[in-house]
Amino acid sequence: MRLTPDKKLHSREHLLADDLSRMLGEERRFAAYLGIAKRYYESDLRGLVRRVLEKQDLPQEARGKYFFAALRDKPQRPESRRHTPKPKKKKRKKRRVRMQKNHKTLPIIKVPQKVLRSVATDVPVTHIREPDIQDLIAAMKITLANTPDGVGLAAPQVGQSLRLFIVSEEAEEIDRSTADIERRFRRRALAGQVPESGMPPNKSNIGSGTRPWKYYVFINPVVKNKARGKALDAEGCLSVPGKFGHVKRCEKITVESLDEHGKKFLRGSANFFARVVQHELDHLDGTLFIDKAEEIIEVSPEEPRK
Rank of each mutant, 00 (worst) to 15 (best):
G268I: 09
L238E: 01
E298N: 14
R50A: 01
E169Y: 08
A139S: 15
G192F: 08
P75Q: 13
S161D: 05
L116N: 07
K8G: 08
L9F: 07
L3D: 02
G229L: 12
N271G: 08
L281E: 02
T210I: 15
L24D: 00
K93R: 13
K88N: 08
K89F: 03
L266W: 08
H279S: 07
R305D: 02
L48N: 04
R187G: 05
K74C: 02
I219C: 11
H14C: 04
V194E: 10
R129N: 06
E26G: 06
S21G: 05
P59Y: 08
I133K: 03
S177N: 10
G245V: 00
D282C: 15
R29H: 06
V217C: 15
F67Y: 06
G25H: 13
E54C: 14
V119C: 09
A179T: 04
A274S: 14
A231P: 01
L53K: 13
N225K: 13
T84M: 06
A274C: 13
A120R: 00
P301L: 06
P85K: 06
G245Q: 01
E295Y: 13
Q278L: 04
R63H: 04
K93W: 01
A227E: 08
A227W: 10
V247Y: 15
E256W: 14
E251N: 10
E172K: 11
R2K: 07
E172F: 14
G229T: 06
S239E: 01
R163Y: 06
E260C: 11
F67S: 00
K243S: 03
L288T: 01
I297M: 04
K110Q: 13
D175C: 02
P5Q: 09
